[in-house]
Design a protein around this nucleic acid. Structure first.
Length: 522
RNA sequence: GGCGGCAUAGCCAAGUGGCUAAGGCAACGGUCUGCAAAAUCGUCAUCCCCAGUUCGACUCUGGGUGCCGCCUCCA
């Protein structure tokens, strides 16, 4: 794994051989999740799945931050209690992540359940002279912790010089870099009793407390989004090592890259993002998961989208979108209509590819049900036989899911060829190869959390989902299909072609094979 | 301004100090098909620029250019 702390790719050596403790920064529950949140959950999920596949006993801890400035602010806007808001979005988070087939963490601590441990940790830091209190706030004394900056590769001196240039500094702090461990309660805010008065935890202390509680002072891997490196994770290190000693805390730091939204940073404050549930209303959730895995987890990911004019279908740029006037044909529309015109080319690609993989699996499944099993032992060789080891090797190399997925291509086409025709191939070998492929793909599916559904059902669901969304009259399609099948049986090609044109007008294409016809979207 | 990252075909995206630089999409040409579609086969890049290290670099070093992120809440 690539370790942010050292900047190098390192062989993973866990504290206890065969076991691995992972802490991952989970969500702050104040809104629905977006693709970036999804990536931050899918990446550690992939890691956990892979390590388990490799035989590790993994303890996976992912927290929920349910006490936070943003939650308080949002609940004030909506006129609900912060705790109520937090519960609502915690539930939504669970639904979204479960739709993406992420495994539940083994422990999911909440800040509100960890207050005692947080207070103890702050008290320890006070005792050691690493923290001080001012008017009920407690701050970490950054200049007293000599390793500060080692994760984000910043120097305290340089940061001190730059401090104050961008934001006003709280004069009560000893140095501008000092950060809050405990915040005095303001009227109406949720608060807990502490030695420093009524208050609540600062932003960073929770993770130090929760990881120590569930994984110990030392553990193997800490994960999160790249943006958390500074200040969040840097501060966690300062707190935890300040309290527990220099050689403690996470050994390997794993950070996933950001998702850029149409070239611009995906940001809630800009408002131009799509939530996970908006996207899973359009595409099967597994498509999102698959899409996230087509790019290496440390890379930035450009989530491209396209807005086309409802009248002339020309692509509209940002300016045209804002004015809601098409630059090509001059058509005037509204933002509401334009929102429905948004297309996601990269998700469409991912969706098609996933459908190809499932179609192959479905066909392979049908073959294995009807064909005669191998009578004799045959040795499977070639791409299908090499697939799984090559796949695993890529995954072992810093979780290279993109490289790993590339390995599947040759076997898939080999299988499709074998399914289409057994010409020149030994019957037993044909069966054995297809069976071997299906078995291998089951393991791939376990690691990826993809391709694991019943293939035929998945394809039907995907089709129905789209039919429902675009308002396709499936009954009508089926009628036409029946008519066309009989026309073809009578070799009435003109009628068959006419019906095919009608289907095309409905947005549907037909695929004929010797046994009949099926339809799909154009 | 400080720190970090990235720059591979029309697009997306892996990868390596030296064998044919994965894979996908698109395109083009075959096979299959009544014709199609699907499937399948084939074609399609010398790796941002300039120096250097090396027997040899796209891969290492230095410089340049461009893009992005963090430094403030953010996955």
């Amino acid at each position: 794994m690539h370790n942010t702390l050292t900047g190098n790719k390192e062989k993973l050596e866990t504290l206890e051989p065969g076991k691995c403790g992972i802490y991952c920064c989970g969500p702050t529950v104040y809104d629905y999740t977006h693709l970036g949140n999804a990536r931050a959950a899918v990446v550690p999920d992939l890691l956990v799945r892979f390590l388990r596949h490799q035989g590790y006993e993994v303890k996976y801890v992912r927290n929920v931050t349910d006490i936070d400035d943003k939650i308080i602010a949002r609940s004030a806007e909506q006129g609900v209690e912060p705790a109520e808001l937090a519960v609502r979005f915690t539930d939504a988070y669970h639904q979204d992540m479960s739709s993406l087939n992420t495994l539940d963490p083994d422990v999911e601590p909440r800040v509100s359940d960890t207050i005692d441990e947080i207070i103890d940790l702050v008290a320890t830091l006070m005792d050691k002279g690493l923290a001080y209190d001012v008017d009920g706030d407690v701050y970490f004394r950054v200049t007293k912790f000599k390793g500060y900056g080692k994760l984000s590769k910043r120097s305290v001196d340089e940061m001190l010089e730059a401090a104050g240039s961008r934001i006003d500094v709280d004069e009560r702090k000893e140095t501008p870099l000092d950060f809050a461990l405990w915040k005095a309660a303001k009227p109406g805010e949720p608060s807990w009793t502490s030695p420093w008065g009524e208050g609540r935890p600062g932003w960073h202390i929770e993770c130090s407390a929760m990881s120590a509680k569930h994984l110990g002072d030392n553990f193997d891997i800490h994960g999160g989004g790249r943006d958390l490196i500074f200040p969040h994770h840097e501060n966690e290190i300062a707190q935890s090592q300040g309290a527990h000693g220099e050689d403690t805390y996470a050994r390997t730091w794993v950070h996933n890259g950001f998702i850029n939204f149409a070239g611009e940073k995906m940001s809630k404050s800009l408002g131009n993002f799509f939530t996970t549930r908006e996207l899973t209303a359009i595409f099967p959730p597994e498509t999102l998961r698959y899409y996230l895995m087509t790019v290496h987890y440390r890379s930035g990911l450009n989530f491209d989208l396209e807005v086309t004019c409802p009248a002339c279908h020309a692509v509209m740029d940002k300016e045209q979108q804002e004015s809601a006037v098409c630059g090509s044909c001059g058509h005037e529309t509204t933002a509401e209509i334009l929102k429905k015109q948004v297309r996601f080319p990269s998700l469409e690609d991912a969706d098609d590819r996933l459908a190809y993989i499932y179609s192959t699996l479905a066909a392979a499944g049908r073959f294995l049900e009807t064909a005669k099993a191998s009578a004799s032992e045959v040795i499977v060789e070639g791409p299908v036989a090499e697939m799984l080891p090559a796949f695993v090797a890529h995954m072992a190399n810093d979780l290279n899911s993109s490289g790993a997925l590339g390995v599947l291509s040759k076997p898939l086409s080999e299988i499709n060829t074998l399914l289409a025709s057994g010409k020149g191939v030994n019957k037993d070998l044909r069966y054995a190869t297809i069976a071997y492929f299906v078995t291998s793909m089951k393991e791939v599916a376990e690691i990826l959390g993809c391709f694991g559904k019943d293939a035929s059902e998945w394809l039907v669901q995907r089709r129905d989902m789209k039919a429902g969304r675009v308002g396709l009259d499936v009954t009508r399609v089926d009628e036409l299909l029946v008519q066309r099948i009989s026309a073809r049986q009578e070799k009435d090609w003109t009628a068959a072609d006419r019906i095919r044109d009608e289907l095309a007008e409905l947005g549907v294409t037909v695929q004929d094979d010797p046994t009949g016809s099926v339809w799909a979207f154009l």
